[in-house]
Design a protein around this nucleic acid. Structure first.
Lengths: 336, 336
DNA sequence: CTGAAAGCGCTTACAG
DNA sequence: CTGAAAGCGCTTACAG
């Protein structure tokens, strides 16, 4: 910048004014042009590090992905989510730092990112129901947005309406004649999404006057293989379900496999409905009926929200809840 | 830092020395302890922005993902790759910035990242065969590592041996008795990975004395649906293949679908082998025989390489090529 | 052993 | 309309 000033015969102040288009600076068009010209010739690009130091902003937002390597290798959600986030924030000159953290890491690896002024705010996916670090950071005033819900309803978040989605799924099963309906969760019930989905399941059952049977409820854990055994157990039970609501498509793949493994057929012997609508669900045999989760839009909303919080905007509501959508394919069928 | 200095009764210089453990600074243990103590009490954390300004480093590496939204939503590679990268670089206090760029974006959106001193180096996935921006940046001396190959062999890169992988796949088909073998690519042949895989296919054919038949070669484009029509065409041809080598698992899913759609069966009527070994390939019907690509290790290697380049290390070779592995499952079978 | 001073590349009151 | 100066929070020769 000093070079530009010298070359143009003005002070750095003036250069800064015209390059940043500062209002009320009243620079005559002539010098203005000259400075712009020189800057172009000299191929001037501002050093954002210096800028950051004086403004106190980093123009960076961190995305903390709380997943194991294994989860990450089967995850198609985060890619779309990232796309949504970057679309919004890059339009405002922010960038995204991605940091993976094991869900059961002994201590926070991400608080440091904000304390050392590496980022201006945090996006946290799949937070634990009760993450003390998130709590602490939020209370310290760190801009933070969760993807998914925790017990702390005062922390800003974006999520899908899990209860409603599960309700819709089970309602669909009931509508087509099923009464004995099993459930395999997407994750341990210590995750809010799992317990919310379970609640939707129970609500639909209750409304239809169907007794809640604990023997029909199993726990999955993110992966296809975690859906295999629970499905076997359901199939082998004295009074097997005619339909199963699986809390995630990925887990449902293992359930489909289990049905085949026992020599039964989907949907003739048992209907299966999933949750998420990842791309691959169209290509299973049969294609999976499921509940669509708008990953891109969740990312987009999270980006909008964190930006507003960073910019100190007062918001009527710090929580955004997006609707899901029932996608009927061929893994569910009317009970004769 | 000024606070710490005042509180401990020393100069900022001294504080800097002990906090950074500067050698030859000969600080007596007593003052050293005192400073550390005060820093802890005051909860001192260095401002990395200031540090960056003086050192001229940003401790950031950008990952440029050249994909459309659609590609990103079916991509399980990038997640694992990211995990590999962050594992290495975070151990050295670097962080990863992720930036998505449409493959056909009119102009570079990422050159700016290095010119404005936002990052110290660039990782570029799925580069175009001939990306002028990559060329330019590399020639300007920007540390840059590609994931995948371009025509420019002087630019550092990490990749799998695509030719060898394809050769192994087709060799497997030949070994189990197939002679009429089709091919559907993973991407347009303007991508280096596609043309390399095609070359491996041709080589295996040639070695076995099988004539190369252009009618048997089709183009896929990343998605399952892009594998559907080509497979139909192959099936409907006057002399259909008994086996098909598909350049990516994702594309192979559409091919499997097409076979079912025509009322044929895999592998009884036609064997199919994929490439990549994504998790879902275990859950198709039948489970897919494929060539494993070590995504995590590619990311890990890319991270190591870019760090070495940034740190100015002289390297014997700037290209790392990782081996693939044949994974035999149930979609390929001996030709009677 | 330790401190005063310059400097990294910017912005922004303030004064003229 | 424009410039001199202070300051953002650090590091690092240099001198004592």
């Amino acid at each position: 910048m000093a070079d530009v000033a010298r070359e143009a015969g003005v002070s750095r102040t003036t250069v800064s004014f015209v390059l940043n288009n500062v209002a009320d600076s009243n620079i005559p068009e002539a010098t203005r042009e000259r400075i712009l010209q020189v800057a172009r010739e000299l191929n001037y690009v501002p050093n954002v590090q210096a800028l950051n130091l004086v403004t106190g902003q980093t123009m960076m937002i961190a995305l903390i992905v709380r997943q194991t390597s294994e989860q990450m290798s089967i995850d198609t959600f985060t890619g779309e989510f990232i796309r949504g986030v970057t679309t919004v924030i890059e339009a405002q000159n922010y960038h995204l730092l991605v940091h993976a953290a094991e869900p059961d890491a002994p201590e926070s690896t991400y608080g440091k990112l904000v304390r050392t002024r590496k980022v201006d705010g945090l996006l946290v996916t799949s937070p634990l129901v009760n993450d003390p670090e998130v709590r602490l950071l939020h209370d310290e005033g760190t801009p933070i947005v969760l993807n998914g819900s925790t017990d702390a309803d005062d922390i800003p978040s974006v999520d899908v309406d899990n209860r409603q989605g599960a309700y819709t799924a089970v309602r669909h099963l009931i509508n087509i004649g099923h009464r004995r309906i099993g459930h395999i969760s997407n994750a341990p019930f210590s995750y809010r999404s799992s317990s919310d989905r379970l609640e939707g399941y129970r609500q639909a059952l209750a409304e239809a006057g169907i007794l809640y049977d604990l023997n029909l409820v199993m726990q999955g854990e993110f992966t296809p293989s975690s859906g295999f055994r629970p499905m076997l157990a359901l199939l082998d039970s004295p009074e097997p379900p005619t339909a199963v609501f699986v809390g995630s498509d990925t887990v449902a793949f293992g359930a489909l496999e289990a049905v085949r493994h026992r020599g039964y057929r989907v949907p003739e012997d048992v209907s299966i409905i999933g949750f998420d609508d990842i791309v691959f669900s169209q290509y299973t045999l049969p294609p999976l009926t499921t509940i669509r989760v708008p990953a891109y839009r969740l990312g987009y909303s999270a980006g909008e929200l964190i930006l507003k919080i960073i910019q100190g905007e007062k918001l009527p509501d710090y929580r955004v809840v997006l609707p899901t959508e029932l996608v009927i394919r061929r893994s569910t069928v009317k009970r004769p």
